[in-house]
Simulated scan of single mutants.
Amino acid sequence: MGDESRVGEARRHAALLAEECGLDDVASGRLALVVTELATNLVRHAIEGRLLLAPHRARQVVEVIAIDQGPGIADVERCMGDGYSTGGTPGTGLGAVRRLADHFDLHSSVPGGTLAVARVGGGAASDAAQAGAISVAAAGEQVCGDGWAFALDGDRAAMIVADGLGHGPDAAEASAAALETFGEDPLASPRVLLERVHRSLRRTRGAAVMLLQADAAAGVVRSAGAGNVVGRLVSGVSDRTLLCQHGTAGVTIRTPEEISTPWPHHALLVVCSDGIETRWKAQTLAPLLSRDPALAAAVLMRDHCRGRDDATVAVLRRKD
């Protein structure tokens, strides 16, 4: 967000996404105010601010994520007070964002910066897990060659992260084919899904893929994958790495192996494509273990994106 004109640009884009997601006029108006407030804050106060907007068409939700690298908010509670505004923006402060959004969460550190996620539309979910993800394209590209998807069903949740080889439209085609196959039967075993994805990607350049199924009732995560997509299970007392086997889905892989790993209470299941540095410290996510998982994705994207490739962070949080 470099200048005031970008605020209007963001608001116009939000209007298009609202129409795509079938939001009514009232919800579209609320979204416009949310975007205006968050974007204006980035322009006026942030260092290296970025505003991300994403449609979730099946859920009729538009998600807005604001990310910056400082200076941070020293008194979050005061800034969250309804009507508080340092810039005289139409929404009259972050309190208005919290009131207008159907879901809102914020994390800030001084001097680290501020992360905020707001969603307009949809309803409350009763699943045992909550999901959030961010994908950004490589510099100079119009499309992202990575893809991600979640499926939440009561105590069970499934996720996929696919990183098409290279970047650009051909990489995006490969990851889209992987997501389409996942969507046909997302709660199948990861091993079976990997075999299906491998077959469906033969007509593409191929992709690195990780597939996971998490079962809160059983307290276990099952995973299978090929290539350089890495998962981690992070809780307040543990940090486990989930690795994929060598190979490229759609090109060459060994017989898929499925790994079972305990899923601790309140743990975050984090999966990153190779556009994210792998050696981030688990303590980075400690303040966010009980927060919206999109905030955990945002902090890793902000602080550990390599900046030379497509990058994805997908996070699944066990609620209990």
Rank of each mutant, 00 (worst) to 15 (best):
A216C: 10
D320W: 14
V26L: 08
D274K: 12
E180S: 11
A124K: 14
A27F: 00
A297K: 07
A174Y: 04
R156C: 15
R98V: 00
F182I: 11
E258Q: 15
T86N: 04
V220F: 11
H45F: 11
G227L: 00
P55W: 06
P71A: 07
A314G: 03
G29S: 09
E4G: 03
P90G: 10
V197H: 05
Y84Q: 09
A118V: 05
A176M: 15
I73R: 12
S223I: 01
E257H: 05
G247H: 10
R78C: 03
V7Q: 01
A207N: 10
M1Q: 13
M301W: 02
R119E: 04
V120S: 01
E19T: 05
T86E: 06
L212E: 00
G168Q: 11
T114D: 15
G166T: 09
S260A: 15
A18G: 05
D155H: 07
H167V: 13
L194A: 15
T40C: 10
S290C: 01
R240A: 12
A282M: 00
V35A: 13
R78D: 04
T204M: 10
I47G: 00
R59T: 09
D185W: 12
R203N: 04
P90Q: 06
P293V: 01
T248F: 02
G225D: 04
D127P: 10
A172Y: 10
G121Q: 12
R202G: 05
V7Y: 07
R12S: 10
S223N: 06
V35M: 12
A171H: 13
S260K: 03
S175F: 00
L165T: 06
S223L: 03
A14N: 03
D309N: 14
L106F: 00
D155T: 07
I73L: 14
V161I: 07
L165C: 14
N41R: 05
R317P: 07
R306Y: 09
D274E: 04
D310R: 08
Q130I: 08
G29E: 12
Q69A: 13
